[in-house]
């Protein structure tokens, strides 16, 4: 099981701030995860049309889409940051 956490418009479009899911063995990279999420329902599929705008953090560290997930326990999906 991996905990997925969502922020800003990613959270709003999915309609929840976090969830725990079982990842299929075929999911090895962040990009694989995004592919898999697109199959989880209409809201996910629509969200993944903006996948290039989605940033990812693995265990609270920024990760590129080609990065391997490994044994991550928490993966966050969010838009580009706008703090400061």
């Amino acid at each position: 099981m991996v905990k997925l956490v969502y922020f800003a418009w990613v959270r709003e479009r999915i309609g929840k701030s976090s969830e725990e899911i079982e990842l299929p063995a075929s999911v090895e990279t962040v990009s694989d995860l995004l592919d898999h999420m697109a199959t989880r329902g209409e809201a996910y599929a629509e969200l993944m049309q903006h996948r290039n705008a989605i940033r990812v953090a693995i265990d609270q560290e920024h990760a590129n889409h080609d990065e391997r997930i490994g044994d991550a326990s928490e993966i966050a999906l969010f838009p580009p940051m706008t703090g400061g």
Partner: peptide, 23 residues
């Protein structure tokens, strides 16, 4: 500004919420 995980959402004076601020 570009790496710390913060996001800004606008709230309007008419009570509606506006957009998320774009990077």
């Amino acid at each position: 500004k570009t790496e710390a995980p913060f996001w800004k959402k606008e709230h309007r004076t008419d009570g509606t919420s506006g957009d998320w601020v774009s990077a």
